[in-house]
């Protein structure tokens, strides 16, 4: 049973279709990247999953159930726009937000202490939120997102504004949660984070699905069909190479589309060329992102 299933979701504001026929599924134990430029419809899609706004058409199910009050308790949501009650203590905030997710007071308190310990913030439990640094506040907000042990996590720009230490800590926790079988939807603009963490991605642009699938498969689909070569010696004629481009200390070889890179490497070895680096060129997700967005404009 998928953790999330969206089928042909549509939503418009003031006559503008901001989410147009979006469909995807997220499996349990998977980190799913939801990416797209600003205003693409990601937040609206997330808000529909949270039942904060209603889709005009289409179906959404969370762990096999159509949206209702109970499904909200199965989801942990870290919105992009963050905030907590400034005048309430760390522990008070965590317990109150956990109680709104259906956790009893005592259990919420135990769990809050456990989580605060995990992030080395137990000594700060009686501090008011306004007394914390911005980064610490964000960590508390993340803890509020997972305090009720949700089966599905929706994290909107979770690393924004975090220092490298806290970013690493958050990534570790996210990976731990995945290993526990939780489904995680990660919405971010930081493409290397998506590459590092996500199993599959969906890219939305202007409210539509424009790129969907496994990250490795997408990257291979957008491959330039070239290899980077750093070498010593003289480069002779190589069968299957249709062009060359020098990039300073390395050369990019453009392949004919039929010859596999291994065959090129074999020819180089037989020519006695000393190979220092041989890399199949795959574009970064960032490049793919830009390519898709520009194509859509």
């Amino acid at each position: 049973m998928p953790a999330v299933e969206l089928n042909n979701i549509c939503k418009s504001y003031n006559g503008n279709l901001v989410v147009n026929n979006v469909s995807f599924t997220v499996a349990q134990g998977e980190i799913f990247g939801l990416i797209g430029p600003n205003g693409a419809g990601k937040t609206t899609t997330i808000r529909m999953m949270m039942d904060i706004t209603k889709p005009e058409s289409g179906e959404i199910s969370i762990l096999g159930e159509s949206l209702n009050e109970a499904t909200k308790n199965m989801i942990g949501y870290l919105p992009e726009e963050r905030g907590l009650y400034k005048k309430i203590t760390v522990l008070g905030s965590l317990v109150y937000l956990a109680s709104l997710k259906g956790i009893g007071n005592r259990a919420a308190r135990c769990r809050a202490e456990e989580l605060l310990k995990r992030v080395d913030m137990l000594p700060h439990q009686e501090k008011k939120i306004e007394e914390l640094s911005r980064g610490m506040g964000q960590i508390i907000q993340f803890l509020a997102t997972i305090i009720h042990d949700p089966q599905l996590l929706i994290l909107d720009e979770p690393f924004a504004g975090l220092d490298p230490v806290n970013t690493k800590l958050l990534k570790e926790i996210i990976l731990e949660l995945r290993s526990q079988g939780k489904a995680i939807i990660l919405s971010t603009h930081i493409m290397n984070e998506v590459e590092a963490l996500c199993d599959r991605i969906l890219m939305i642009n202007k409210g539509r699905n424009v790129l969907h699938g496994e990250l490795a498969e997408i990257k291979s689909r957008y491959r330039n069909n070239s290899v980077f070569l750093e070498f010593d010696g003289v480069l002779g004629e190589i069968e299957g190479v249709v062009g060359k481009k020098a990039h300073g200390d390395y050369v990019e070889l453009f392949l004919d589309g039929e010859t596999p890179p291994q065959k090129i490497l074999g020819q180089l070895a037989s020519q006695g060329v000393s190979v220092n680096r041989f890399e199949v060129s795959t574009p970064s997700l960032n490049e793919i992102f830009l390519q898709v967005v520009e194509k859509g404009q």
Binding site: K72, R82, G83, L84, K101
Partner: peptide
């Protein structure tokens, strides 16, 4: 203003 609203609405109607 402090965006707690989004968190609240993700938990309650």
């Amino acid at each position: 203003e402090n965006r707690v609203m989004e968190i609240l609405l993700s938990s309650v109607s």
